[in-house]
């Protein structure tokens, strides 16, 4: 009874509040039934082509028919186990890092090693694996590959840049600052264009890299600059006493950085890193503008099938839902990690 009275007060406490409630109710009453009938009650789940779909409702049969395209792009269907295996390696080493605290170092090494292992698995060409050209990679898989590699490489790069920017040497600090501020000032799309068009010019004669590699290099450089700022903030948050105490113990500069500053900075940097990861994962969608077929790119490709013409709403809603789930997973696991770290160190 008390809760009812409280909720009544929260909803209709004053005339303004009642007005807000009325407006919100009207909005919900307008949107929810429409959404319900389009997405669920009026939707078609099984059909062979667009003609089999009921008008006025969503045609989810189309998403079912194109599911492989959304997930793997044009990756050969009989080779999909390689994608699953690579994903399993990554997930296993990530889970190991979080769950098996005592052998964390070993799991971290495995995580690092999963980049070359995953690259061999996905690209093939050796060990009897059928080669798969990177132009056939696509869909959600491509977004995950791009984001995973960019995050993994940009964390050490960002740490190095942060130390360089905070260095007492003016030259080093200046060089790092220019690099970081340049990448933070330019739009990702502009530098992606630059990577695709101009990167070949920067490479020595005879060396060429494919489009995926070019986008990857740009994403790594771009993310490193943002990571560097997160780590710089974290390093500056550590009390000066820590460095002084370490110096008093006779530790050398690199030892202070690696053993005293870095472990503490890592903990402070966790929320920032998670934010960058989520942003980066969303930003990988931009590669579709420079000619790669990520989730957004395959969504555009899928609606060109003559059997399923004009179903772009379904295609983009499904792509958005996939993005949403992964971003939410990332933020939630980030919050979990933050809470665990905080509870462990709160007694300090």
């Amino acid at each position: 009874m008390k809760t009812m009275r409280l909720s009544f007060k929260a909803l209709f406490g004053s005339w303004f509040n009642s007005l807000v409630t009325a407006v919100m109710l009207a909005l919900l009453a307008w949107i929810v039934p429409q959404l319900w009938s389009w997405a669920l009650s009026g939707a078609t789940w099984i059909a062979q082509s667009k003609t089999g779909c009921a008008a006025g409702g969503a045609c989810w049969a189309f998403v079912g028919a194109k599911l492989k395209l959304f997930l793997y792009g044009n990756y050969p269907a009989e080779q999909e186990w390689r994608v699953h295996l690579a994903l399993a390696v990554v997930v296993a080493s990530l889970a190991g890092c979080v769950l098996d605290e005592r052998r964390k170092g070993r799991w971290l090494l495995m995580l690092m090693a999963s980049v070359p292992v995953g690259a061999v698995l996905l690209a093939g060409g050796i060990l009897g694996l059928v080669p798969v050209r990177t132009s056939e990679w696509g869909g959600l898989m491509l977004n995950l590959v791009l984001a995973f590699v960019a995050v993994l490489v940009s964390i050490p790069a960002g740490i190095a840049l942060a130390f360089a920017r905070l260095s007492k040497s003016r030259t080093i600090s200046w060089a790092a600052t220019v690099f970081i501020e340049f990448w933070r000032a330019v739009p990702l799309l502009a530098v992606l264009f630059m990577g695709v068009v101009m990167l070949p010019l920067f490479l020595p004669k005879g060396v060429s890299v494919d489009n995926l590699m070019r986008a990857m290099i740009v994403l790594v450089l771009f993310t490193s600059a943002y990571m560097a700022e997160v780590f710089r903030g974290a390093l500056q948050d550590i009390p000066t006493g820590q460095t002084e105490a370490a110096a008093a113990l006779g530790l050398r500069k690199p030892q202070v950085a690696l053993l005293i500053l870095l472990p503490q900075a890592m903990r402070i940097a966790v929320p920032g890193i998670v934010n960058i990861m989520v942003d980066l994962f969303k930003d990988t969608s931009l590669v579709s503008i420079v000619g790669l077929f990520d989730l957004t790119g395959v969504a555009a490709q899928s609606v060109k099938d003559p059997a399923w013409l004009g179903l772009s709403t379904e295609a983009y809603v499904f792509a958005a839902m996939l993005f949403f789930v992964w971003c939410l997973l990332m933020s939630l696991s980030g919050q979990l990690m933050e809470r665990r770290l905080n509870s462990r160190f709160s007694g300090r």
Binding site: K282, S285, Y316, F324
Partner: peptide
């Protein structure tokens, strides 16, 4: 809005 790429939202607005 925060958990879906801006690009997807813009293309959806435009085409969808």
């Amino acid at each position: 809005v925060r958990n879906v790429p801006l690009l997807t939202q813009i293309i959806f607005l435009y085409i969808g």
